[in-house]
Design a protein around this nucleic acid. Structure first.
Lengths: 112, 112
DNA sequence: CGCTATAGGTAGCAACGCTACGTATAGGAG
DNA sequence: CTCCTATACGTAGCGTTGCTACCTATAGCG
């Protein structure tokens, strides 16, 4: 998968991974990997800063938990986050439709 | 459409717009707009630099033409461009499938 | 004569995902 | 006991890239 391809679509994926309950960052990364059959294996340097952005934006809220001597930052969706996820899904639908149409090519208006 | 959404997907769209014959930059912009029912109305500041990039990369080749006293830069796909377009379509298919899957959410692995 | 559509262009910016690191603990392999 | 891997979090800096805002110029119409 090309590096730039994800730009602007990552946030929705992260929100979706938190939709059915709280998860910590590493688990989000794994959830996305598992759900996509390994095809979406995000580097941690992508996941953590993105989660920080989302928290900053108020779309998720995080809290520290200690499990088996390891500290975890657990995130859950806020109400805004839920709304944003819905918006992200709608946007994706439209975006995908537009790109699919334009990429398919035909029928182009006659070449002038 | 969110600004960042297109990142990494523009090149394929431009190549697709040139698939069935040479077009100049402005016509490429119009072709994409018309083909997507006005939903993909790229600013010229996006189109022209992108075409320059594609020419630089050897995916399209351009030449100046004068039509009705107006100079036009007409582009056509190179062989590399045709290959790249094919690759872009394949990548898009995979990318769209992955994002659609992850965005849909279910079924996530059990929350640990 | 002014306005719009057509046609091309650039400079500079902002966003954002990635690479390459660094820290630390738990647990199994040897 | 030690080493290695998986788990878990983090940041600095970079490169790409589309966009905003602007500029130039011609054709054609009111």
């Amino acid at each position: 998968m090309r590096a730039e391809a994800l730009k602007g679509h990552l946030d929705g994926l992260l929100l979706a991974a938190l939709e059915d309950g709280p998860r910590h960052g590493y688990a989000v990364k794994e959830a996305l990997r598992d759900a996509t059959d390994g095809k979406l294996d995000l580097p941690t340097g992508t996941v953590y800063p993105a989660l920080h952005r989302l928290e900053q934006a108020g779309l998720i809220s995080g809290s520290w938990v200690v499990v088996a001597g390891r500290r975890r930052r657990t995130y859950e969706l806020t109400e805004d986050g839920r709304r944003s996820l819905k918006g992200a899904r709608d946007n994706w639908q439209e975006f995908a439709a537009v790109v699919s149409t334009a990429l398919r090519g035909a029928p182009w208006p006659a070449t002038s």
